[in-house]
Design a binder for these strands. Structure first.
Lengths: 357, 357
DNA sequence: TTGAAAGCGCTAACAT
DNA sequence: ATGTTAGCGCTTTCAA
């Protein structure tokens, strides 16, 4: 690898002149000097070492991204969107770390990021214990959290980007209510996270406000450690077995996310129940495959691109202006109607094409 | 951020002693010196800068990973697996770059990786033009390619990890043949890549060997730039419209990957055709959602963990021993039988399919 | 057993 | 308009 020295030598100038062209300080440079330097750079195929540059400037064009697991398509889509805007708008690269929702791993990753000279991280996590994040901030890492819930008593030192989970829960419940459902359920994994709790709260609030004639239950599947983000469909599948056995079976079910909803629908089918005839299902996330499963899944979508854009912009802003006061951004969800919801007992569409065995 | 100087000062030793403990050269160090240094490190919460370290050693514990797009679950699973073994076995982090199968972007990314001091990259790409990869190797980047096909006349300077695509094509075709299908088709996007070509070759070879009574066609969907890796399902959906209109409709269809297969099944349903009664479908990849769609998708699986492990090990090996002769690793696929294949159902009926609204 | 010092590739203040 | 030089935080000879 050629260095700035090699270029300087070849162009017969000093390293500072080379450095100046690298950094665009070329206004008061003689044309031919500039040309010679450019030529030398070309000839050597020289690329400056970001690493060496960092050592001086204290910055490296990489953003950290902590995510439960990109094998969950919903996070994969977010990660792709983040990478895209970081790259296109700021020429930043993204270091993706899968945390598996493990706080110890998150802590280690955050430390590693600092060690690598990375100055900002986007943390997608709804673990309620934030101490490791606080510690990272103490060490000078700028963080933008996603879906992390805010704590009013203890003002935060980082930016929050928040999908409106309560609203999402509400939207889903209201949609089922509007279709005439009375007996509703919410399906989720056992472990407590902020976003799960909020989704349930919104769901229950909507039903509570609807009146006494409505019943709601929360079905928690205890997977132990069996269900990571790659096994959410399996978790939904298992939840369906439970629901199918219920005496008073709900006719409308909201799943905590699309992958769970997809597994849930498969599980119902496995039990001889059809969607939406026997049970209507609403997912959350609007993962791209949801449009192609059977039946196409009605779901609550988060504006992924806007979220990604906001997170990247805040992260970069905070690198440049570390003292910017922390901000919060909330993104309202949107209901995407497809075919997994109908009036209870009445097919929304002809069931001819669906042939459960 | 505390530096090695701060630690040295606090422990009342020289920086070299601190460096020695950082690098485990502590055999001939007096116990109390060691203790004082450890204590200082603790007290300051000191973490060495990998960046500064790199400037000396020329290595940074990051692997590059170029991938068409992690919004394609099949690549997402590979990426997660790569990240997992890089981290667990070698304490390496992974910088994920989505290339969108664009050679210019791939080239730029490869250059950027070198600029960041990254010494090895795993490149998942089946672009047939490898010049940018050659250029990166010239600049000292170690590369391990996945699914890139080998060129016998022009011996390669990097490691190849290869799923056996021909075998995959064969396995899929043979499975349909074994179920009594005579009219087969292969669905793929228009753009030529090595892996697509090989899959088709295997598919056609198997059918050719089966005898004259078999017919095979390749259906190429020209998406222009509409279909990236996030739109494969849509592509499959569109392919289904074409197939449904065919005079001589195939009864067994192989899709180039699972997402396309899932979209294809949805498209058939949309045209009033059922799977597997009217058309049997085989996918490729064994993406996790394939088990939960309707019908559960029969598919050809690649051993993702082994592949990921091999790629990471070779990449790290090549960092340590740059002169290791290039190797090739081939991974045989495996058929995963589920419920999207049956004996050909009804005879072909020419009446236009009715569409559910 | 410990320390001094050179240098990795670059930036930026300062000098010319 | 261009060059000289002092570091950035660390590793690693070499010397003490």
């Amino acid at each position: 690898m050629a260095t700035i020295q090699d270029v300087a030598r070849l162009a017969n100038v000093s390293v500072s002149s080379v450095s100046n062209v690298l950094n665009g300080r070329t206004e008061r440079m003689r044309k031919d000097t500039f040309a010679r330097i450019e030529e030398a750079i070309d000839k050597l195929g020289y690329r400056p070492s970001q690493i060496a540059r960092h050592l001086k400037t204290g910055n490296i064009p990489i953003l950290g991204l902590l995510v439960p697991s990109t094998s969950n398509p919903s996070f994969a889509q977010l990660a792709v969107a983040v990478e895209e805007v970081a790259q296109r708008r700021h020429n930043y690269r993204v270091l993706v770390c899968n945390t598996y929702r493990d706080q110890r791993m998150e802590a280690k990753m955050l430390e590693d990021l600092s060690g690598l000279g990375i100055r900002a991280a986007i943390v997608i996590s709804s673990l309620s214990d934030e101490r490791h994040i606080e510690a990272a901030i103490d060490k000078g890492l700028a963080v933008v959290s996603y879906d992390l819930g805010i704590n009013l008593s203890n003002p935060s030192r980082h930016d929050h980007v928040l999908p409106d989970n309560r609203m999402a829960g509400r939207l889903a419940a209201d949609h089922l209510i509007a279709h005439g459902h009375r007996h509703l359920a919410f399906v989720r994994p056992k472990g407590e996270t902020i976003s799960r709790r909020e989704k349930v709260e919104g769901f229950l609030a909507a039903i509570g406000e609807a009146g006494d004639q409505y019943s709601a239950q929360v079905i928690e599947i205890d997977g132990g450690s069996r269900f990571g983000d790659n096994e959410l469909a399996k978790l939904g599948f298992e939840a369906a077995q439970n629901v199918a056995r219920l005496g008073q079976r709900p006719t409308g079910v909201v799943a905590v996310n699309d992958m769970t909803a997809i597994g849930f629908m498969a599980g119902l089918r496995h039990c001889g129940l059809s969607v939406p005839e026997d049970v209507s299902v609403v997912g959350m996330d609007d993962v791209s495959v949801s449009e192609y499963v059977w039946p196409p899944l009605t779901t609550v979508a988060t504006p992924v691109s806007e979220v990604a854009e906001t997170m990247v912009e805040q992260a970069i802003l905070r690198i440049r202006e570390p003292d910017t006061p922390p901000r919060e951004f909330s993104f309202p969800p949107r209901l995407v109607e497809r075919q997994s919801v109908s009036r209870p007992g009445k097919p929304f569409i002809s069931s001819a094409a669906s042939r459960p065995t």
